[in-house]
Design a binder for these strands. Sequence first.
DNA 1: CCGAATACGATAATCGATTCTCAAATTCAG
DNA 2: CTGAATTTGAGAATCGATTATCGTATTCGG
Lengths: 131, 131
Amino acid sequence: MSYATRQREVILGILRQASQPLTAQEIRERANQNRTGIGLATVYRALKIFMAQGEIAQVEIPGTAPCYEPTDRGHHHHFICQHCRQVFDVQGCVRDLEKLAPQDFQVERHDITLYGFCANCVEGHEQPETK
Amino acid sequence: MSYATRQREVILGILRQASQPLTAQEIRERANQNRTGIGLATVYRALKIFMAQGEIAQVEIPGTAPCYEPTDRGHHHHFICQHCRQVFDVQGCVRDLEKLAPQDFQVERHDITLYGFCANCVEGHEQPETK
DNA sequence: CCGAATACGATAATCGATTCTCAAATTCAG
DNA sequence: CTGAATTTGAGAATCGATTATCGTATTCGG
């Protein structure tokens, strides 16, 4: 009912090798760096299939196009660099988040997004400590 | 350089009276419930002006159109009902969020978004405790 | 009150993300 | 290998959010 194709392998491979969530565009660009053209439509078709299979998940970051990442990375959150706009994975979490919601509300899940400057962009922006 | 108009008063009033952040569409709908037509373009023009003045801020929620809320509500976060899709303000916060980021990263701000069912929608969905 | 500056409303235009279309290419069961 | 089912790529089409256009209406200093 579904064929295994070179393109889908490439797309899934790119997502797995990436250290950050990627947008559909970024996936296409990386796919085309090496081999021949993979169409954007194909990327979206593959993403839809992989999401249906639970292989990957969409990460929606305000102000950025939706990103995708493998689901096998466990519970984590994201850091967005205000300078280079890259999205980084952040391990770890905090407890007691559910307690923030009003009592009658039922919290199913949560997202934490940190904004700031990544290691590469810290220099020159908002110097951390002019020690 | 900028005229005070009935429309802008209405728009700002709606945002201030609302208990939740509102989308441009929602603002227009509420404005038109009572009086005569306020165009969507006018809503966007007013929002842009109020944001430039620091009166209101944009709240970007993945999967929802951008919302707007007054800036005088202090530090808080948001809860999105997975059923009715409404956005609720959540008071309070957690500490030590900065510690989640890698050491070389500089955290400037953060967003916490809770997802689940609001008080009105809990019944019938994922019953909390079939006690 | 007058008139220039500014804002309005309706709608068309734009924008970025995503989906659709369709002929050609690929996959894979037999 | 063969052919039916599926997928692909390129570009057109669509979608929702936002912005631009433009003739008319409103604001407000003098």
